[in-house]
């Protein structure tokens, strides 16, 4: 749907051929989501089939064309569809599949996973990409004035920046909730760990860590334990 609507929006500006559509899409989004040329043509063919786009008849594209490349333009229905995209909010009904959310949901239910360590590793990784986006943004800002496409790319980068920030905040929240849940169910969890006898060094580290900040002495034991693990 995104590619389809984007191509309609681009064609609303002027008729274009397939490769031009690909280039314009990538230029305005800073190459963040590269398009496959085959995907562009397949989508255009579907738009033609649905009566939203028609090929521009040969000869109308101007006599200076060396190579006859097929250009496409919107039909009145296509124009209505393109205009409708701007006025319709993007649907958020069905959440996209998010590997991290799924991984965490499984981690808190599968026994023996060091959730705290997993959260910290993710936080570090997300902050790394946040830093990279920030640097790209700074270099984009240095490189040029607020020309249309530069502004567009910088806004796309902002989107990635804010999404990464939200992810870090969510991880903080998850960490606090997991720690609280562990405090509440601490005795129960300890009893079951002792029963299975599964006390590897890394699992041993989750114990005091997961019980949270009740005492400095306890909770600091975990990270150093983790560092000592292979």
């Amino acid at each position: 749907m995104t590619v389809r609507n984007s191509l309609l929006a681009l064609l609303a500006e002027q008729p274009m051929h397939g490769y031009q559509l690909k280039q314009e899409f990538e230029r305005r989004t800073g190459g963040t989501w590269p398009l496959n040329i085959g995907q562009v043509y397949t989508t255009v063919q579907r738009l033609v089939r649905d009566g939203l786009v028609v090929p521009v008849p040969q000869g109308e594209t101007g006599p200076a064309e060396d190579v006859p490349v097929e250009r496409f333009r919107l039909t009145p229905d296509g124009e209505a569809e393109a205009a409708g995209w701007w006025s319709r909010p993007v649907e958020r009904g069905a959440p996209a599949r998010d590997e991290l959310a799924i991984k965490l949901a499984l981690a808190v239910t599968v026994p023996g996973v060091d959730v705290a360590a997993m959260i910290q590793a993710q936080r570090t990784e997300t902050l790394r990409s946040l830093r990279d986006y920030t640097r790209l943004k700074a270099s984009a800002a240095r490189a040029g004035a607020a020309e249309g496409a530069d502004l567009a790319w910088s806004l796309v980068l902002d989107n990635l920046v804010f999404a990464a920030e939200a992810e870090v905040r969510w991880l903080d929240h998850v960490e606090a909730r997991v720690a609280r849940a562990a405090r509440a169910g601490g005795l129960r969890a300890k009893a079951s760990t002792d029963a299975t006898g599964a006390s590897t060094p890394s699992e041993g580290a989750t114990g005091p860590r997961a019980t949270g900040d009740a005492s400095t002495h306890h909770s600091t034991a975990a990270p150093s334990g983790r560092r000592g693990a292979p």
């Binding site: 997300t126 902050l127 946040l130 986006y133 920046v161 804010f162 990464a164 920030e165």
Partner: peptide, 14 residues
Amino acid sequence: ARFAAWADRTIFLR
């Protein structure tokens, strides 16, 4: 995090 991202590196304290 969004401001820490301006740094060359970030260290996490706990």
